[in-house]
Write a protein that binds this DNA or RNA. Structure first.
Lengths: 335, 335
DNA sequence: CCCTTTGTTGTATTGGTTTTCATGGGCTCT
DNA sequence: AGAGCCCATGAAAACCAATACAACAAAGGG
């Protein structure tokens, strides 16, 4: 049998309410009694039972975090930042990895709800926002996805993917590239994938590049899909045409595409330029160093965690809040 | 006010005990009543309160997971496997990242305990096992660390790092290398770092390599530390000597070391061979492809999760259990 | 007809937090 | 100076929402 608050109360000669007041620091307790309570706690080795506390306060101090794929450095960097900010206010993170899969994402969100997390931080969710909102009643922060008008306790933290992609198009056209391969993400599921694609293609059009000069193919942000997509492109690729560049929707995917290029003995950027997206830590150590767009995941994560803590600890309503961060082109050696 | 088991009971015309029996499936309930209970649950939109359940059953269905650094692909692959196995038996993972830091590791373990997780999976902990055991009363699985005799509810899942490192030494000597740089991990904190170092150096000695031909330096498994260590080595390196190879204690660290070599225009493996450890997913896509030792993190994670679930769901005692997995050399292009 | 089995219920229990209530001391007002 | 009032403090009890256990009724078998 464990030592409970009653044992402490008896041992210290006070009531259980007093012990509780000492622990929660919410009401004034005379220093004499406080002393005796602390002494009893030490002598008996008391640990508060969080299950009981949770039941009464209807809080768990647990934040549910969804990511599409924790092995993608982009997300693991985000989770790390999230965890560290949350720990600062003694909140715990329960992690859900959906493996880039809409179905398990739905399951995971349902799982979070049935474990009664205090709030949910969804990083790059694939679900529709209204579906999400239909399930979620706790505070929700959506990371890496642009805001939608809503009536609910939701905040958004995001960077402008359309403009990020547009700046890539500007840059590549300026560099003299005239043939383009856009290795997109799953645009029907992920609106960032959509934004990166349209930002790129529409800007090309503004520069007078004909649509026929931009070939689009669709993957799912993973290394493997970048590899496969580029492999398919190279089967019909004509090396004699005008200068070509690939805009790939994530750094990891770009890495895969670069492997496919190297396998066919293509030199980057001489035979084909490559631009990624995200600027993960490792992208400056690829060979060649990857030109990419900064997608500030750490800042996003820190903002998301702070918004969530505001909602939970300071009862701030998240409705209508959104934090927009900058996406800047980072030019390196791959084009 | 939320709908509780009492509301269901009243609405279905049964007792709360019957509703509980339907939910927990532990006692037989006639299909008639079961039907009515389910109907009431649907009509009222009832969700069981896990806080109350946890209090009564003294269980949370939450497993605490510690990793030194989630941004290291080695660990994120492990966490992914862990999460997926745990989800299969509807357990949740709360994640703690210690940022390669002993102090925050201690804090994190304390945090897990005060949140009353059902069990703890510690991946590559830096803490002494007896310290760990002094704090932890729940089932504990230690991953990526060799077993120690104990009296307690602890299991180990590990691979033989000594022999893995020994096979590297055999291989390098066989290849004709005669000068060695060992970029070790924090050997005083992490026994795998120690095992990899001694496995390597002792095997070199068996081959008659003089100690003076093996230069050891110490880092902390990160990319940056690999980079810095190699940079320091190259400041006094004599290119004219006999063939040299570096054995680096983790793939990420090896990557850092390779960057330092490239920066100084060293060709790998011509000017210096490099061998890593872990065989993370990306190591076969580095340039050149990294020769390394397979450290089967996914298998370790799956085993660890299953052991934990055995302990929690099937009341199996973990005492004395240990799962040893193989570490095999994987030869690629970097030496 | 009794005993066991099966199905159902009432109620204690879990360990905290919160509310309510009692007490006593000090202060103000007349 | 005495009555009344308020506030600080702490004890007692209610409460949170489930599970578990013992008790009991009905049915079935020997």
């Amino acid at each position: 049998m464990n030592v409970t608050i009653k044992d402490i109360a008896r041992h210290a000669g006070v009531s259980t309410a007093t012990v509780s007041n000492v622990l929660t620091q919410k009401k004034y307790v005379s220093s004499d009694l406080e002393q005796r309570v602390f002494q009893a706690i030490n002598e008996l080795g008391y640990r508060p039972n969080v299950y009981a506390r949770n039941l009464k306060t209807n809080r768990s101090h647990i934040i549910g975090v969804h990511v599409p794929d924790i092995t993608n450095p982009f997300f693991s960097e985000g989770v790390k930042a999230l965890q560290s900010v949350a720990a600062g206010e003694s909140y715990q993170i329960v992690l859900y990895d959906s493996d880039n899969n809409l179905e398990s994402e739905v399951k995971n969100i349902a799982g979070m709800i049935s474990t009664q997390v205090d709030g949910i931080i969804a990083v790059a969710p694939r679900m529709q926002v209204d579906e999400l909102l239909a399930m979620v009643e706790v505070p929700l922060v959506i990371v890496d996805r642009p805001p939608l008008p809503t009536q609910r306790n939701v905040a958004y933290v995001y960077a402008d993917n359309y403009r990020g992609a547009a700046s890539v198009a500007d840059f590549l056209v300026g560099k003299g590239y005239r043939r383009f391969y856009c290795l997109a993400g799953p645009t029907e599921l992920v609106c960032n994938a959509e934004a990166r694609l349209t930002g790129f293609t529409e800007t090309l059009r503004l520069h007078g590049i004909p649509d026929t000069a931009c070939h689009v193919s669709y993957g799912d942000f993973t290394f493997d899909s970048g590899y496969e997509l580029m492999k398919a492109i190279l089967e019909t690729y004509d090396p004699a045409g005008s200068p070509a560049a690939a805009f790939v929707s994530s750094d990891i995917m770009a890495w895969g595409a670069m492997e496919a290029l190297k396998e066919k003995k293509f030199k980057i950027p001489r035979d084909m330029g490559v631009v990624g997206y995200d600027n993960i830590y490792f992208s400056s150590f690829l060979y060649p160093k990857l030109t990419t767009v900064e997608n500030p995941i750490r800042e996003m994560a820190v903002n998301a965690a702070n918004l969530m803590l505001d909602a939970l600890e300071r009862r701030r309503n998240l409705l209508g809040l959104s934090v927009a961060l900058r996406s800047a082109l980072i030019v390196r050696k791959s084009c």
